[in-house]
């Protein structure tokens, strides 16, 4: 876990330095320069952060639902703690993704919020997480609390499949992959630049490792709290 901690922090630091620091020029000569994407200019740097954050929020949600299912199957309280900690990280990262996303929306689509189907998806995730923690807080009996919040998490997970993966493709929207868009490929792929793609995937890797480390940390903290303070 220690290796994970240092690697992920190092990768994210590098992404911050290169992603924000490297200049953007018309015709890049070496790897130290990003190409200019017409219409996006400096703004595309946001993608190095927004997409990995949304990615981690989604991963955290899937992991949380997975552990809830495992809990219901085994009735082992440790899985419930894992589900809870992953949900708390999901809440954090979906907040971050919403913030970076509205920055993107403001400067590219004109306002902080456009009610695009993808924006609805992130609001959906946020609401689910809030509801999950509210539910946990309002059930006193421990067995009921663990069981019921796990059931809610699984139901929410099932409805997320419909909401995040099916519905946006049926409705028209601004994000890539919406209905009525012939070329559903990512924006960065269109730039044809290897170093942009490299920074992007490097960032994705960094954030994923960072999530794994945080998940482990949060799990161990919650477990200790539960064992020692019956929290």
């Amino acid at each position: 876990m220690r290796i994970l901690k240092f690697t992920s922090i190092a990768i994210i630091t590098l992404v911050i330095i290169f992603g924000i620091g490297l200049p953007i020029v018309e015709n890049p000569q070496n790897w130290m320069e990003y190409p200019k994407i017409p219409g996006l200019d400096e703004k595309f740097r946001n993608l190095f952060f927004h997409v990995p954050m949304s990615w981690v929020a989604t991963i955290a949600f899937i992991v949380s639902t997975f552990y809830s299912l495992k809990y219901l199957n085994s009735k082992n309280n440790l899985y419930d703690i894992k589900a809870e900690s992953s949900a708390s990280l999901g809440l954090l990262f979906s907040l971050l993704a919403t913030i970076t996303g509205s920055m993107w929306a403001k400067f590219n689509w004109g306002s902080f919020w456009n009610w695009d189907p993808r924006q609805l998806s992130i609001i959906f995730l946020l609401l689910i997480y809030f509801a999950y923690f509210l539910l946990r807080a309002s059930i006193k009996n421990e067995v009921s609390r663990n069981n019921i919040s796990a059931v809610y998490n699984v139901i929410a997970g099932l409805s997320a499949i419909f909401f995040i993966f099916i519905l946006p493709r049926m409705l028209a929207g601004l994000h890539p992959g919406s209905k009525g868009e012939a070329d559903a490929g990512p924006i960065l792929g269109g730039s044809g630049s290897k170093n942009v793609l490299f920074t992007f995937y490097f960032s994705l890797l960094g954030f994923t490792l960072f999530y794994i480390w945080l998940q482990n940390l949060s799990y161990r903290t919650r477990k200790l709290l539960k064992e020692n303070y019956h929290a």
Binding site: L120, F124, L127, I128, F130, A131, L134, L135, S138, I139, K140, N141, S144, I148, V151, Y152, I155, A156, S159, F163
Partner: peptide
């Protein structure tokens, strides 16, 4: 799900909105 919880009146719209959306 909410029948076991405490503040039922507040909880139902909160829990159902994302699922019903």
């Amino acid at each position: 799900i909410i029948s076991k919880a405490e503040n039922k009146g507040l909880l139902l719209p909160f829990l159902s909105f994302p699922i019903l959306l």
